[in-house]
Amino acid sequence: MSRPISESRDSLFAAQTLAPDAQQGVGTADAYAAERAPVSAGALPPVLLVDGLTRTYAGAQLPAVRSVSFALGRGECLGLVGESGCGKSTLARCLLRIEEADAGSIMLGGQDIAPLRGRKLRPHRRKIQIVFQNPAAALNPRLRIEDSLLDPYLQLGREAKLSHFAYTSRDAYVRRLLEAVELPAELAGRYPHELSGGQRQRVTIARAISIEPEVLVLDEPTASLDVISQGAVLDLLTGLRRSLGLSYLFISHDLAAVHRMSQRIMVMRSGEIVDQFEAEDLFSEERHPYTQELISIF
């Protein structure tokens, strides 16, 4: 099952170079280190502080998410890896308040949003957005791309002062968003089924950043894409994080992608964070046995 870590490291980097470098022609470990650098260095207070978050599904004996705590710095990309069913997506849904946590706090911009409901929660919704794994399911098939892109602004953006995506007119706003994710403006009038998988995922990213959130939860954003599109979407996300000063919680079971994107990595198993470390320490011998097992699989 397990291979020596040094051997695994070679195969992991080989995997990393496969996707983006086919297009970009960069592939050294230094280039990745530069890509991972946080937007703002220094001791800024964390933009997201999660403490003791627990979620148990009705009828389940064990919690899906068990006492998870972590901090996400401003401009940082924090990776979260773990096998399927370990609770990564449940954690994401709890952070977005799509599902309710049983216990714990979610400090977002200094305010605990876990106990808030209805109108009190609404102003905080803009600060955290999500990109799901399957863009086909994340877009309403009966809405044109422009209508999907406008939804967040019409609900939450009017109350906020947007700087990068300031709303002047409907067309200009949509065009600006599509430009930001490197899509042609002609796609605005199309329906999701008329777009490729990679284009759809770019649209969901555009929608998520349209109201300039502080935190973007990326729940396996490249899992349903082909290798070329995966690399292109990861490049796009890196660029957006830098230009918009976003903080990412990057969830994936793809250790190579997480290592490429993140400054810090958390490893989740059976609902618990079992390991948390700087990305460059991924191959350290001190890693948790489960982390070493994950590395050896890659």
Binding site: R93, L96, R97, I98, R125, I130, N134, A138, N140, D151
Partner: peptide, 24 residues
């Protein structure tokens, strides 16, 4: 489906989700 979950993160009320996303 995810687009309904996302609509919730956009602050759409239940009534609005039903009328805009589910009724069609």
């Amino acid at each position: 489906k995810d687009y309904v979950a996302i609509a919730r993160t956009h602050g759409l009320s239940d009534a609005r989700i039903m009328s805009r996303h589910l009724l069609p």
